[in-house]
């Protein structure tokens, strides 16, 4: 379970997150929507400690992420993350991309790591691209590679930071399908997304962020069909 309490984040003078309270249960799929600069991506970075926080707390299964004595490298193994820029490692083949972290972080043998890599690449539909370098893969394929790479660490939670925003329109579908697949398998997911269809169809809950505040959270039906907040109404009217 992810427990976020009174989370504040500043970038210099900019107050990006203004007191977020949020719980995400095991097996839940939460979509976070909102306009650019609303702080939704920053929230993900604060959850796995890629960004420091100024106030409040984030707990993963009871472990305080930002506590001084927390081993973040160990904690991050629980949290897979997929970025807007897919960030494939260009010097490694697809298989090596996925096998690297299991080998050096978890200390698996080379054979074991490669086996995990092969399994995960097949899982995301890249079974025929094992030996390809990222430069030979399309954006959609590289993003699926990034998902496989995160899954290879056997995370309990997956954080998606606008995973489809940098893709060509015709490649968005294949990545969303992979994310859908994970949701069906019961993965706990927090998806920062601009894909309203995905948020509506796949999520258990949807949160709307506005200027660093979580304006509204609830089941997709509520957010999309009878939003309470005026800001949510306005935002949805604009994206539709």
């Amino acid at each position: 379970m992810i427990e976020i309490r009174d989370l504040h984040k500043h970038f210099g003078d900019l107050h990006v997150l203004k007191g977020i309270d949020l719980d995400v249960k095991k097996g839940e799929v939460l979509s976070v929507i909102g306009s650019s600069g609303s702080g939704k991506s920053t929230l993900l970075y604060c959850i796995n400690s890629l960004e420091k926080i100024q106030q409040g707390s984030v707990k993963i299964d009871g472990i305080d992420v930002h506590a001084k004595n927390t081993d973040v490298n160990k904690l991050r193994q629980k949290l897979g993350m997929v970025f807007q820029q897919w960030n494939s490692f260009p010097h490694l083949t697809a298989m090596e991309n996925v096998a690297l972290a299991p080998r050096i972080v978890k200390g698996k043998s080379k054979e074991e790591a490669l086996y995990i890599a092969e399994t995960q690449l097949k899982h995301v539909g890249l079974g025929d691209k094992l030996k390809n370098y990222p430069s030979a893969l399309s954006g959609g394929q590289q993003q699926r590679l990034a998902i496989a790479r995160a899954l290879a660490m056997e995370p309990e939670y997956m954080l998606f930071d606008e995973a489809t925003s940098a893709l060509d329109p015709e490649k968005v579908g294949e990545v969303l399908d992979t994310m859908r697949l994970l949701a069906e398998e019961g993965m706990t997911m927090i998806c920062v997304t601009h894909e309203m269809g995905f948020a509506r169809d796949v999520s258990d809950r949807v949160a709307y962020f506005h200027q660093g505040v979580m304006e509204e959270i609830g089941p997709p039906e509520q957010i999309f069909y009878s939003p309470i907040s005026e800001h949510t109404k306005k935002f949805l009217a604009n994206v539709r």
Binding site: K74, R76, Q77, M81, N87, F89, I104
Partner: peptide, 22 residues
Amino acid sequence: PVSMRKASRSLGMSYWQDLRHI
């Protein structure tokens, strides 16, 4: 790119592992 280093850290790599392998 900074984002690539964040990606490797998000996989659980330490600062030095990121420096050495990425």
